[in-house]
Amino acid sequence: MITKPLKIVAVCGCGMGSSVILRMNAEKALKELQIPGKIEVADVTTGKGAARDADLILVSSELLGLFKDAKQPVIALKSFVNKNELIEKLRSFMETYEEKQ
């Protein structure tokens, strides 16, 4: 069981377009998977700072290169509007995350 809500950072280029969509879908996905969590939006310049104390980073597969040195787990998404892709990837992330707890 997770006792502390997850801190998740959704990153995009400007912090107002795709990351906003990502946050919305991630909120739905967390609810569906019954995972407590809080999602923040960040752009690529603030993203790395915001991600420093995050449990998870969500990013477009096209921006994954920017996070190749990140210590935190990163989920890279092909589609920002496909909820199933996000749910599947969050579910497998949670399996490893819960094992570590």
């Binding site: 400007c14 969509i21 096209e62 921006l63 589609s79 920002f80």
Partner: peptide
């Protein structure tokens, strides 16, 4: 500029781009 700096990430879904810049 956003496209040149960050590339195709603005293609958010199959066949769909969301061009935008900061406010």
């Amino acid at each position: 500029d956003v496209y040149h700096q960050l590339g195709a990430y603005m293609v958010i879904a199959p066949h769909v781009a969301l061009p935008h810049a900061s406010p």
